[in-house]
Amino acid sequence: MTALALVSQPAILRLVETTLEQCLVRAADGDQRAFAEVYDATSSRVFGLVLRILVDRAQAEEVAQEVYLEAWRQAKRFDPDRGAAISWLLQIAHARAIDRVRASQSQRDRDARIGVRDTAVPIDLVSEQAEVSLEAARARKALRELSDPQRQAIELAYFDGLTQTEIAERVGAPLGTVKTRLRDGMVRLRGILGATA
């Protein structure tokens, strides 16, 4: 990837996010059309994340609906000074999807599901993609720059919804080591990807 691509793409995102933030602020005043614009601009990314975590399409739709209802209810609490609208939505989406994973699945179910996903699911996802995000490609590249244990810990947390304690059990490492891997890995990622959400 050229340096130019790394620099120019976030600049475009900032432009998009400004508009999104304005729409979300208007939605906070009860403007349903503005909220529809937020939905249209973000739903594929929110759905992509929720589907990746939950794998099951029906569940992903339910959770995505919950995410947008929560965003609507809490829109007044979105503060553009605190960050980008897409980041705010994706954080809600992640928390909701992880809550669903933990609430609806036993550990055993989850293990089985993760095993299935590791083989079959990415193919399905590719066929369904509306767009291949440059940002996602950057993130994948950045993840590859981490050490294997760091990347594994972050992926088990972010995509599989494991708690740090569960990660420690899964990989057979002390909890303190897992905490360090998560922290060092995330700080490194932030260094690579920059501060732009």
């Binding site: 529809a36 939905y39 249209d40 739903s43 594929s44 990314r45 929110v46 759905f47 992509g48 994340l49 589907l51 990746r52 739709e61 995505a64 609906q65 960050g83 980008a84 897409i86 980041s87 994706l90 954080q91 989406a93 992640h94 996802l125 369904e128 993609q129 509306a130 767009e131 291949v132 995000s133 940002e135 996602a136 950057r138 993130a139 950045a142 993840l143 972050i154 972010y158 995509f159 995330m186 990622l189 932030r190 990807l193 501060a195 959400a197």
Partner: peptide, 19 residues
């Protein structure tokens, strides 16, 4: 948390019924 959202991955079109 801001950085973590960059990991969110590829977009997948949500079904029209969701909208």
């Amino acid at each position: 948390a801001d950085t973590a959202t960059l990991l969110a991955g590829d977009a997948v079109a949500a079904p029209a019924s969701l909208r």
